[in-house]
């Protein structure tokens, strides 16, 4: 077991590379989910206002960077690595980057719907989409539960007949 940890610790430097096998400090995505929770909660509270729409647009951009470019480009992740991580002890264990990156993609899907709806003035649709994203982000932040990842297999079952 200890050799396992040592082996993956060597990969810490690989944070910047985002091949499917990339390992990340699990506290990074967890921190990102906490910030996302706050941003989305504010977006719900200010739904229908310009400020609410700006928050949705910002979070859409954050998810797009995390999902399309990779976790290394995700603003909250950058903040975690440059400001918070240096003050923490090394992680007990690293995790695969693929699940949190997939979670960013699921978040992006909801936020794109929310952003389009908000821009078209469909506040109810935007609110529902943001509410789902908020629930997922909160579950990730508070419980380390990746809702998108859990739904992945069901999605595969439905998509590939």
């Amino acid at each position: 077991m200890s050799s396992d940890v040592t082996k993956s610790d060597v990969l810490t430097g690989a944070d910047l590379d985002c091949s499917p096998r990339t390992q990340v400090d699990p506290r990074g995505p967890r921190f990102g989910a906490a910030v996302t929770t706050i941003v989305l909660a504010l977006a719900l509270i200010f739904a229908g206002s310009t400020f609410g729409t700006v928050l949705i647009a910002w979070q859409t951009l954050v998810f797009a960077l995390g999902a399309i470019v990779g976790l290394q480009a995700q603003p909250y992740g950058i903040f975690f690595r440059s400001v918070i991580k240096p003050r923490l002890s090394p992680p007990a264990e690293l995790e695969d980057a693929a699940p949190p990156r997939f979670a960013q993609a699921v978040g992006l899907a909801f936020l794109v719907v929310a952003l389009v709806a908000a821009l078209l003035g469909a506040t109810v649709v935007a609110t529902v989409a943001v509410a789902f994203a908020l629930a997922a982000a909160f579950l990730n932040a508070a419980f380390g539960f990746c809702l998108g990842c859990e739904m992945y297999l069901l999605g595969q079952r439905l998509l590939h007949r």
Partner: peptide
């Protein structure tokens, strides 16, 4: 301010689900 209530509702539901799932 109905947004506040939606936030509270979502967080309560997600917390309940989170604990159930953990169990």
């Amino acid at each position: 301010m109905s947004g506040v209530w939606i936030v509270i509702g979502v967080l309560i539901a997600a917390t309940a689900f989170g604990f159930w799932n953990r169990w």
